[in-house]
Simulated scan of single mutants.
Amino acid sequence: MTLKPREDSAKELTVPLELTPTDAARYRLRSQRLTPRTDDESSPSELLSSVCGVQAQEKRAAALGVRARSRTLTEADLERALYEDRSVVRTWCMRGTLHLVATADLPLLLSLFGETFASRGPEPKRLEAMGLGDTDIDRAMEQIRTALGEDGPLTREELATRLQRGGVDVDPSSQAPYFLVRRAALLGIACEVAPKEGQMAYDLLDEWVSVDESPDRQTALVDLARRYLRAFQPASVDDFAAWSGLYVRDVKLAWGLVADETTEVVVDGRDAAMLTEDLEAYESAMESRAESTVEAADRVRLLPGYDSLLLGYEKEARPIPRGYESQVWPGSGIIRPTLVADGEVTGTWRLDRARATTAVVVDPFERLAPELEAPLRDEVEAIGEFFDTDVELRFAD
Results as ranks from 00 to 15, higher is better:
6 R>T: 00
7 E>A: 08
11 K>A: 15
15 V>D: 10
21 P>F: 11
23 D>H: 09
25 A>S: 15
31 S>M: 15
33 R>Y: 09
34 L>E: 08
35 T>I: 13
36 P>N: 04
38 T>W: 09
46 E>R: 07
62 A>V: 03
67 R>K: 14
68 A>C: 11
75 E>D: 15
79 E>F: 10
82 L>P: 07
83 Y>P: 03
88 V>H: 02
95 R>E: 03
95 R>V: 09
98 L>T: 01
99 H>T: 05
99 H>C: 08
100 L>F: 15
105 D>L: 01
109 L>R: 00
113 F>R: 13
136 D>Y: 06
139 R>E: 15
142 E>M: 10
144 I>G: 01
144 I>M: 09
145 R>T: 05
154 L>Q: 04
155 T>Q: 02
159 L>K: 13
163 L>D: 01
165 R>V: 06
172 P>E: 14
173 S>P: 00
180 L>N: 04
180 L>P: 05
181 V>A: 12
183 R>T: 12
186 L>W: 11
192 E>Q: 15
195 P>N: 01
200 M>L: 07
201 A>F: 03
204 L>A: 05
205 L>G: 03
217 R>K: 14
218 Q>M: 15
222 V>H: 13
224 L>P: 01
228 Y>H: 11
229 L>P: 07
231 A>L: 04
239 D>C: 06
245 G>L: 03
246 L>N: 11
249 R>I: 13
256 G>V: 12
256 G>C: 11
257 L>F: 05
276 T>A: 11
278 D>W: 00
281 A>V: 00
284 S>W: 00
289 R>L: 14
293 T>S: 12
296 A>K: 03
297 A>W: 08
302 L>K: 03
303 L>D: 08
313 Y>L: 13
316 E>P: 09
321 P>M: 09
322 R>P: 10
325 E>T: 07
327 Q>A: 15
327 Q>I: 11
328 V>T: 12
330 P>N: 04
336 R>H: 01
337 P>D: 02
345 V>K: 10
356 A>P: 01
358 T>F: 05
361 V>D: 10
369 A>N: 12
369 A>S: 14
371 E>N: 08
373 E>W: 00
375 P>S: 01
377 R>D: 04
380 V>F: 06
384 G>Q: 12
385 E>G: 11
386 F>A: 13
393 L>H: 12
394 R>M: 11
394 R>Q: 12
